[in-house]
Amino acid sequence: RTRTSFTAEQLYRLEMEFQRCQYVVGRERTELARQLNLSETQVKVWFQNRRTKQKK
């Protein structure tokens, strides 16, 4: 599997969503992935990694 390189715009949007809600599921995840031109899996994993980073 190749590592995803997020654009600055994608990271900004993901961070904004994370500040709003640390868990994104269902339709929200589908819509966010579509808007950012990413897969739902990429969005899901980004949120998982971001929550892990916050715990440290």
Rank of each mutant, 00 (worst) to 15 (best):
residue 6 F to S: 02
residue 25 V to D: 15
residue 46 W to E: 01
residue 3 R to Q: 14
residue 27 R to V: 12
residue 31 E to V: 06
residue 32 L to H: 07
residue 17 E to C: 08
residue 43 V to S: 03
residue 34 R to T: 10
residue 30 T to I: 08
residue 18 F to L: 00
residue 56 K to A: 06
residue 17 E to I: 03
residue 39 S to N: 13
residue 34 R to I: 06
residue 56 K to I: 12
residue 17 E to F: 12
residue 11 L to M: 09
residue 22 Q to T: 09
residue 9 E to Y: 05
residue 45 V to K: 07
residue 45 V to W: 13
residue 32 L to F: 05
residue 31 E to Y: 00
residue 19 Q to F: 06
residue 48 Q to R: 09
residue 2 T to F: 06
residue 49 N to P: 00
residue 19 Q to A: 12
residue 51 R to E: 06
residue 33 A to R: 00
residue 19 Q to R: 06
residue 20 R to C: 06
residue 43 V to M: 01
residue 30 T to Y: 14
residue 8 A to L: 09
residue 31 E to S: 05
residue 19 Q to N: 10
residue 37 N to S: 07
residue 20 R to G: 05
residue 20 R to H: 12
residue 26 G to T: 04
residue 39 S to C: 07
residue 46 W to Y: 11
residue 23 Y to V: 11
residue 52 T to R: 07
residue 25 V to F: 11
residue 24 V to M: 09
residue 47 F to C: 02
residue 4 T to C: 09
residue 31 E to F: 01
residue 52 T to G: 14
residue 39 S to P: 13
residue 18 F to T: 01
residue 31 E to Q: 05
residue 35 Q to R: 12
residue 34 R to V: 11
residue 23 Y to S: 13
residue 33 A to Q: 00
residue 28 E to R: 03
residue 7 T to N: 10
residue 28 E to K: 01
residue 20 R to N: 15
residue 2 T to A: 08
residue 27 R to G: 12
residue 4 T to R: 05
residue 21 C to H: 08
residue 37 N to E: 12
residue 54 Q to R: 07
residue 11 L to V: 11
residue 22 Q to R: 06
residue 13 R to S: 11
residue 9 E to Q: 08
residue 49 N to K: 12
residue 53 K to Y: 15
residue 20 R to T: 06
residue 54 Q to P: 13
residue 48 Q to N: 05
residue 16 M to R: 07
residue 33 A to C: 06
residue 22 Q to I: 05
residue 48 Q to Y: 06
residue 47 F to E: 00
residue 17 E to W: 05
residue 36 L to Q: 03
residue 53 K to E: 15
residue 4 T to W: 10
residue 7 T to W: 00
residue 46 W to G: 01
residue 8 A to R: 06
residue 47 F to W: 02
residue 5 S to G: 12
residue 55 K to T: 15
residue 35 Q to S: 13
residue 43 V to C: 04
residue 42 Q to G: 03
residue 33 A to N: 01
residue 20 R to E: 07
residue 51 R to H: 12
residue 9 E to M: 07
residue 19 Q to W: 08
residue 28 E to L: 05
residue 9 E to F: 13
residue 32 L to P: 02
residue 10 Q to K: 03
residue 41 T to P: 09
residue 21 C to S: 12
residue 9 E to P: 02
residue 43 V to F: 01
residue 35 Q to H: 09
residue 16 M to P: 00
residue 51 R to N: 10
residue 18 F to P: 00
residue 8 A to M: 10
residue 3 R to D: 15
residue 22 Q to Y: 03
residue 17 E to S: 06
residue 41 T to I: 04
residue 11 L to I: 11
residue 20 R to D: 14
residue 1 R to S: 12
residue 4 T to A: 08
residue 10 Q to A: 08
residue 3 R to F: 15
residue 12 Y to W: 12
residue 26 G to F: 07
residue 44 K to L: 09
residue 33 A to M: 00
residue 15 E to P: 00
residue 27 R to D: 15
residue 51 R to W: 07
residue 49 N to H: 05
residue 35 Q to W: 06
residue 28 E to I: 02
residue 46 W to A: 00
residue 37 N to T: 07
residue 18 F to N: 02
residue 7 T to F: 01
residue 38 L to P: 00
residue 40 E to G: 05
residue 28 E to Q: 05
residue 45 V to L: 14
residue 12 Y to P: 00
residue 6 F to P: 06
residue 56 K to M: 09
residue 14 L to K: 01
residue 14 L to A: 02
residue 35 Q to F: 06
residue 1 R to L: 02
residue 14 L to G: 01
residue 55 K to G: 13
residue 35 Q to Y: 05
residue 44 K to F: 04
residue 35 Q to C: 11
residue 16 M to Y: 09
residue 4 T to V: 10
residue 31 E to R: 02
residue 40 E to H: 00
residue 23 Y to L: 13
residue 27 R to Y: 10
residue 8 A to H: 01
residue 26 G to E: 07
residue 4 T to E: 15
residue 43 V to A: 02
residue 49 N to S: 07
residue 26 G to V: 03
residue 26 G to P: 08
residue 22 Q to F: 03
residue 20 R to Q: 08
residue 53 K to Q: 14
residue 56 K to T: 14
